[in-house]
Design a protein around this nucleic acid. Structure first.
Lengths: 244, 244
DNA sequence: GTTGTTTTAGTACTTTAGACCATTACATTC
DNA sequence: GAATGTAATGGTCTAAAGTACTAAAACAAC
């Protein structure tokens, strides 16, 4: 009963022809990149220049190199695509269907990433020329199973943003409470009472009020705040749990 | 700048020698199987019979076959290991470090699974002879990065059990409220007030009280209940959210 | 009948969420 | 300098939920 090759004595695959067929997979990473421009939540998509799915929108990604781990591969893709490093990155789900890719057997590890859209460098590499920000409502059909991946990413983000202070990753360093509230409202597709939202957020003691105000607005300028990541770490250790 | 082979025109990997090195990965699945015997939360571990990590405990798993998707592979492992089908299964995380396995480059898709320990068939296949239930506190070192996988699975389970009614997957079909409470208490390492726990659970209207009582107890027998999965589906559609 | 535990039905207190209101502050525009 | 528009601030009130605790009735086993 030769059902579990992997549980049996091990040698390197290259010395073990029986195992060769098991080492024929490609692994890719795909990363759903979210941004927020003050009005819409957007996602970074590329347009495919070749078949299959020529002209379709796709989530940026690439094959993982043989000597590269998955997170590094994703960071590489993100760096080449956006010019940015050290942005929020979270593993989402691995899609490993048999026929999901015509190139061969490719399992993709999907990630999603949050970045400050203002930091985005539109042309850090030749590859990114056809990358563009799309409002998430306007996404249509996508290449491969990328729509499915996007849907999973959005669901995850909506959940994550309620339970961890990751919304700030999408805002500029300095933002007003109205900015924050509007982000949450568009992302979660709900409405919050302004006064209650203020109270709740400020009560968490995660924001440092700056001695700065909005400018170039034609009404009383709102105060600018900054997220205090160190403070959050502190509070987390003491059992604090971010909610809503 | 040939950095993104995958974004370029596609042909099958077997006709494209440049891509061959990218199709050299093995993919495995590993599944953390949880059970509950009325006292302890346990996990099903196998003892490795060969190097590396001979004698160490490991999480059951296997290489994914070239024509098999990951969920099917996991179900196959579980069937061979436990004799069971249709048990709760959730993808956990994919571990894709470069050197996590001496056999070659293997990425593992980790799952976790919940089953009614009484349904477990101890010897459905030759492979499972050295499988055993271990209380989760007694796990020591494990093979490969399996301890890390287990830790992630436990954290996920503790989270999942609070937000979705999956605890019932670990209990027999018919159980008492005290059984349920004790499961939650051991799993989450907390204590609940008995009266309040009853009220909260019953108020959800997810349990059907049976006309049956415990037997073979030397005190007043408790009523048996059954989880109503269909009812949960119903309520979920209407926006109900299980909590605690 | 005694024992041990479940079941059931409470009470009381505290906390949180949610809806709502009113006043003051202040840059811009007229 | 007044009007305008929105932010900031500090509330109130109510409903709902969580927490802690009490007490009595039910019932199998001994």
């Amino acid at each position: 009963m030769k059902q579990f090759p992997f549980a049996k004595p091990l040698m390197h695959s290259s010395n073990h022809p029986d195992l060769a067929p098991f080492f024929s997979f490609g692994i890719s990473v795909d990363c759903v990149v979210f941004g927020y421009d003050g009005v819409d939540v957007k996602v970074l998509v590329i347009e495919r220049g070749a078949d299959p799915y020529m002209g379709y929108q796709a989530i940026p990604g690439d094959l993982v190199h043989p000597q590269e781990d998955a997170v590094s591969a994703t960071q590489r893709v993100l760096r080449d695509l956006t010019g940015l490093e050290n942005i929020y990155l979270e593993q989402l789900y691995t899609f490993a269907g048999v026929d999901r890719h015509p190139l061969g057997r490719v399992a993709t590890i999907a990630y999603f990433s949050l970045l400050k859209i203002g930091d985005y460098n539109p042309k850090p590499s030749s590859w990114a020329t056809d990358a563009q920000w799309m409002p998430i409502q306007e996404l249509g059909e996508m290449a491969f199973d990328h729509k499915e991946i996007f849907d999973a990413a959005l669901l995850r983000l909506q959940h994550r943003v309620r339970n961890q202070p990751v919304g700030f990753e999408l805002l500029p360093e300095e933002f007003t409470l109205a900015d924050l509230q509007h982000l949450y409202e568009t992302l979660l597709n709900t409405q919050f009472d302004k006064a209650n939202f203020r109270k709740k957020i400020l009560a968490m003691d995660l924001l440092v009020p700056l001695d700065k105000l909005q400018n170039a607005v034609r009404h009383r300028p709102a105060r600018l705040y900054q997220f205090d990541a160190a403070r959050y770490e502190e509070l987390s250790k003491r059992g604090f749990h971010f909610e809503l």
